[in-house]
């Protein structure tokens, strides 16, 4: 289903959900939950957004049933730890590649995905200052290295 332009800012979180459907359904579930909560704040009144959000809610309810025996979905504190660990694993992989001078598309994507998953952590409450800083750094690094590679420059 096409994403209404008003909800454009959740498109990357929805894409991350899709990419993790098989690899890690818990990550996919929380990415969609974040997209749902954010989407409702952005626009839940226009017919096109309501239609989109109702579909997304249907999908979330189905996933919740399918994952009903998974503690990461049934217990918020376990889910929080799962998403935070996954985000930091992505961050550390990208950071290690960066510090070793290995610049490539995969590490750019890891930095960016880490920043998106740190957004997703907001479904559990306010982000810690450390996670706010990690998110800012990961997003900046992803953009910076992407631009360097595009312009044929070596990142510093």
């Amino acid at each position: 289903m096409a994403l209404p332009p008003q909800l454009k800012s959740i498109q990357h979180h929805l894409r991350t959900a899709q990419e993790h459907e098989k690899r890690d359904p818990v990550v996919a579930y929380y990415c969609r939950l974040y997209a749902m909560q954010t989407g409702m704040k952005l626009d839940s009144k226009s017919p096109e957004c309501r239609k989109f959000l109702v579909k997304l809610m249907d999908q979330l309810e189905t996933m919740k049933k399918e994952l009903s025996d998974n503690e990461s979905v049934t217990q918020e504190v376990v889910g929080n730890a799962h998403i935070e660990n996954y985000a930091l694993k992505m961050f550390l992989y990208a950071d290690n590649e960066d510090r070793s001078g290995r610049f490539h598309k995969n590490m750019i994507k890891s930095f960016y995905t880490a920043s998106l998953l740190l957004d997703v952590l907001c479904v559990f409450g306010e982000l810690s200052e450390e996670n706010v800083q990690h998110r800012k750094y990961a997003r900046w690094k992803a953009t910076y290295i992407h631009n360097c590679l595009k312009n044929g420059e070596t990142p510093l």
Binding site: M36, M40, R50, L53, M57, L60, T74
Partner: peptide, 27 residues
């Protein structure tokens, strides 16, 4: 007509909020 449209939109929005709360309640 406008107010009917608004009420429908508001009811559907409430329904979504209710479903979201239910989804989160079970966590």
């Amino acid at each position: 007509m406008g107010s009917v449209g608004t009420s429908v939109a508001s009811a559907e929005q409430d329904e979504l909020s209710h479903r979201l709360a239910k989804l989160r309640d079970q966590m």
